[in-house]
């Protein structure tokens, strides 16, 4: 979906970020120090740069100063307010503090990309085409009418595809604050979505965890 550059000196964390972002359909390039990050970002086009602040050679702050207009999400172990403000002031689009949740990272990457990436936004799987900008869904070419909540649910699954979403997480993502039902509400909406789009085989129930869209 998007081309990402991951600059993080901790191999384990770099791999972790890469694995998860690849799962939700992004194309990732890994670098392990500041100089390499700057070189890569200047020679090749990336939709988003995930940049650790404490990089060997050249700190993340220095990298962003010399960077063009590539969107940046800072990853930092420092929770200090001054660091976050410094990052944002230098032009970062968002920041994420270690230790972070994978789903949070995916959400933030998606949010920044939605803001900054101008290309048409649509997604296809198992005969279903989703126009994310126009908020329309087609099944085998003919339009299916979804309620706003159903569409939001589908969008959450697409953004976090191949990752299991708990019912709580879905409530947080789809219903946000105006939720007065219980977990059953989520189940009912998922059932309706499966039936309307005929995606029972890919929108799976994950035992004890929640639901997962596997594509």
């Amino acid at each position: 979906m998007a081309k990402l550059l991951i600059a993080e000196d901790e191999e384990q964390i770099n791999d972790l970020v890469k694995k998860n972002l690849c799962l939700v359909g992004h194309e990732c390039t890994q670098v392990f120090d500041g100089g390499a990050a700057l070189d890569a970002a200047l020679t090749e086009h990336f939709d988003l740069l995930i940049l650790d602040v404490m990089l060997p050679g050249m700190s993340g702050f220095e990298v962003i100063k010399q960077l063009g207009d590539t969107p940046v999400i800072f990853v930092t172990a420092k929770n200090a307010l001054s660091d976050r403000i410094k990052g944002l002031r230098l032009g970062a689009d968002d920041y994420i503090v270690k230790p972070f949740e994978i789903l949070e990272l995916v959400e933030r990457v998606d949010a920044v990309l939605r803001r900054t990436k101008s290309t048409a936004h649509s997604f296809e799987f198992s005969g279903v085409t989703v126009d994310l900008d126009g908020k329309r869904v087609y099944r085998d070419g003919s339009e299916v009418i979804l309620t706003p909540k159903e569409f939001a649910l589908l969008e959450a699954f697409i953004t976090n595809r191949n990752l299991a979403l708990s019912r709580d997480r879905l409530i947080y993502l789809v219903w946000t604050y105006d939720f007065d039902g219980d977990n059953r509400t989520v189940d009912i909406h998922v059932q309706r979505l499966r039936r309307k789009l005929g995606i029972e085989s890919v929108l799976k129930t994950v035992y004890k965890t929640g639901y997962r869209l596997e594509v």
Partner: peptide, 11 residues
Amino acid sequence: GYAEYIEKAAV
């Protein structure tokens, strides 16, 4: 992160 990965990812 890796525990979450095992728990949630379809891999």
